[in-house]
Design a protein around this nucleic acid. Sequence first.
DNA 1: GTGGGCCGTGAGGAAAACGTGAGGACGGCC
DNA 2: GGCCGTCCTCACGTTTTCCTCACGGCCCAC
Lengths: 226, 226
Amino acid sequence: MKILIADDDPQILRALSITFTASDYDVVTAGDGAAALRRAAEHHPDIVVLDLGMPQLSGIDVIHGLRGYSTVPILVISGRMDSIDKVQALDAGADDYVTKPFLTDELLARVRALTRRRLPLREESGATFGDVRVDLVARSVVRTTDGADIHLTRTEWRLLETLMVNAGRLVTQEILLTEVWGPQHIRDTGYLRLYIRQLRKKLERDPGTPRHLLTEAGMGYRFVPE
Amino acid sequence: MKILIADDDPQILRALSITFTASDYDVVTAGDGAAALRRAAEHHPDIVVLDLGMPQLSGIDVIHGLRGYSTVPILVISGRMDSIDKVQALDAGADDYVTKPFLTDELLARVRALTRRRLPLREESGATFGDVRVDLVARSVVRTTDGADIHLTRTEWRLLETLMVNAGRLVTQEILLTEVWGPQHIRDTGYLRLYIRQLRKKLERDPGTPRHLLTEAGMGYRFVPE
DNA sequence: GTGGGCCGTGAGGAAAACGTGAGGACGGCC
DNA sequence: GGCCGTCCTCACGTTTTCCTCACGGCCCAC
């Protein structure tokens, strides 16, 4: 379970880091809003803990930035108790709001409550289609015809995972590019053509006429299990 | 959006009832834990707001009872600020925890945050009419007669989406042209004739006599679900 | 009637988007 | 250094999408 913690106070950052590391989280930290967005794009955290009062790029900006491409749970920490701040943050897309000072036990419990909602998605993390069986958790692809293992590279996994998590739904090029290569490559549609082809070569029965990794010209791609 | 409010204090119950009714929620109330479980089973609420300090069946018991069969979002209200209570409630399966006294604005925002996360997971994000089922989120059209997928292009989706979010209302040519092709094409009504035809071919049972994508001569078009 | 809007229909070509093949840059590893 | 896997660049053929153009029908005003 990977957690991104963003706070401009190094002391709090360090304290939270220790707390979550002790609870077996994989911790990524950021000292300001811009860094938070950058690190989120790099690391794909399972949950984001965000201090609202950061200089330059505010917490609200970061929420908007994240929500532009991701549904990752966001927990906001703030020193201000104003109702208006809470409402603003929650309506911007945050999932929970905690005011300082807070007890670490409570913070941990709230983070557990937020991540718990996501887990059921992960349980059904495999799919069998065409001639292959894909397991997203085990990161394995097995050909059902002869039981051979098929190897996917890191980039291929990230792309396939994004498509499979949204099985049946159209996933726009923007979302795919942001999830796999980061927001700075949002216009590099050539990457998609290249790696979709790779995935088709490895997963489709007839890569020339794909049945599961479908193109929707001008919009994006769609994974259909059946 | 249906909300179940459970509190043993009739005054609070009444106040919350008024607040949520005013925000267009469909409100169901319960005065104790047993009633809460009973009414939840009857009404299948979209969210549950639960006072922790109820007599007989406590809030924690109600959470356990609900979680036995449902994943409905649960927001807990409590007069006790003890960290131990919060942790217990959250780990029992609650999704959020608010301590009295609280501001109604904040409570409303938290309820919005909880229900928002559920919506995209729901299957029902589109409309069924004629022989097709349209899902705007998944960007999919399925013919109900034989289950075949119907493919729409980017422009067709944009036009259909504009009409569907204004279901039942007349949408002027100017608005459609601006939304789909941009303000510079506000006079190109030929685009509309072309793409409305495409949509009718793909969605209407008898494209010659449309029943859902209706022309209003000289004004615009109207989408009617039934 | 009849002429002018307005709308629906049909076909076809330009442009955008996509798929494909070959190969170079880079870093890890022996 | 040489090998290998991975990622990315570039050029070119193919498919899909979008838009243009021409024509016919309907309705209402005159």
